[in-house]
Design a protein around this nucleic acid. Structure first.
Ligand SMILES: [Mn+2]
Ligand SMILES: [Mn+2]
Ligand SMILES: [Mn+2]
Ligand SMILES: [Mn+2]
Lengths: 219, 219
DNA sequence: GTATAAAGTTAGAGGAATCTAACAAATAAA
DNA sequence: TTTATTTGTTAGATTCCTCTAACTTTATAC
């Protein structure tokens, strides 16, 4: 049974291995907010528990067991976020910190009941996929908005950044998941985009913002 | 800020000081499932934090600060139990273990939202009072069913034991809080009582059970 | 009122998770 | 290809929470 600390290490590893499979110690240290020696010694324990593959001076890899264990924590995290938003009326910018704590609760039934009440959701309030009970996660092949062309119609489907700062920015522009955006133009100089959606006839979004918006093309 | 461990010590102290104000180290040890030396050293820390009054070889007393801190944890525990039963469909026998973990979550808003959704309840699913936001707890002056007389009409209002074993026993007899019971007779030999309630015309309850049922007399 | 038992304390140790300081290896730059 | 920088490791210490063994104080029994 993983401690809360180990669960946090597993979760960070899981999130960082969605792109490349290997994670350097330094990256774990920054993401977890602890020193490198701390990570070094923790990773040695986790290796004994068969959660990671590790060799001196080499980056860390999750084992299959580790991947599944991690996915089940991410599942609890994302189910919780969904529950807080859909059943308790929280804003999507408020839930991450709370879920960060509730994900460590050991009470299968509690999360099963959430899942039921929510109608077995497959994505969280930020559009990230919720791993299933077996720890399998579906690959969502969204496109970066910054890669869309003028004239395209897209549906805002997920976010590449779920920080409250970014979520509050999206709130201020009334941008929500599921919305249809029309790309009016793309400024070649700074890669900003002008789009329309909902009641907003023309909004300009910086490259930085567009890179964080994941979309699906309409047909 | 109290650690989860300290919070558990405070909560046990709070519960044990509802009767007598002083708690011996040995009692804390058994209720917390740790050794006496562990309690001894922990109590010394808690004394430095001004949560308890303690002198060598003397039993432990909560300070006003300690009492309030403890009450606010009990508040979180009982609000959670109420939420699990009334909003998530759990049975009253299932919720204590889950609440034991959730009570340590640091997210004011989370419990405030629960409180709102529940309509600001004053008692938990077992009839125990929920301390208010200031940590004040109301004294409920219920009577022990074992002290009732034949002929009395009473309302089952709270429980002196919330163990799942006892709650499952009550489930098997269809006994719920708020029910009106008529005391038909009282057997002098073993202090058992025969009562009627709901559809049940005649049920005999042992002294052990009656002592755990807290009731309010009907006028 | 002494002897026995129960309750409480001290001393010393260990595991988990963390740190800083010092050193070593790997990588990038000159 | 040396040198400098970045990354990673080791050693040693700290805090928190826990234990067992040994001892002391207080309470109970005779
Ligand atoms: Mn999150
Ligand atoms: Mn966490
Ligand atoms: Mn409880
Ligand atoms: Mn607890």
């Amino acid at each position: 049974m993983a401690s809360s600390t180990e669960e946090n290490y597993l979760k960070v590893l899981f999130n960082l291995t969605q792109e490349k499979t290997e994670v350097p110690i330094s990256e774990l240290a920054t993401h977890l907010g602890v020193s490198m020696p701390t990570v070094n010694s923790m990773i040695k324990n986790m290796q004994k528990n068969d959660w990671v593959i590790y060799e001196k001076y080499k980056p860390v890899t999750l084992t299959e067991i580790g991947k599944k264990t991690a996915a089940l924590i991410v599942r609890k995290h994302r189910l919780t976020e969904m529950f807080l938003v859909n059943k308790m009326g929280f804003g999507w910018e408020e839930v991450h910190e709370i879920a960060e704590q509730i994900e460590h609760i050991h009470a299968k039934k509690f999360f099963e009941r959430m899942d039921e009440m929510l109608g077995f959701p497959t994505v969280d309030p930020h559009g990230s996929p919720i791993p299933d009970k077996q720890g399998r996660i579906q690959e969502l092949h969204y496109k970066n908005l910054s890669l869309a062309q003028a004239g395209n119609q897209v549906i805002l489907s997920a976010l590449a950044d779920s920080s409250s700062d970014f979520l509050e920015f999206l709130n201020s522009r009334e941008l929500k998941l599921g919305m249809e955006l029309k790309i009016l133009s793309r400024e070649p100089y700074d890669s900003s985009m002008t789009v329309s959606y909902g009641d907003r006839k023309s909004e300009t979004l910086s490259e930085k913002v567009c890179e964080k918006l994941l979309v699906r093309l309409v047909e």
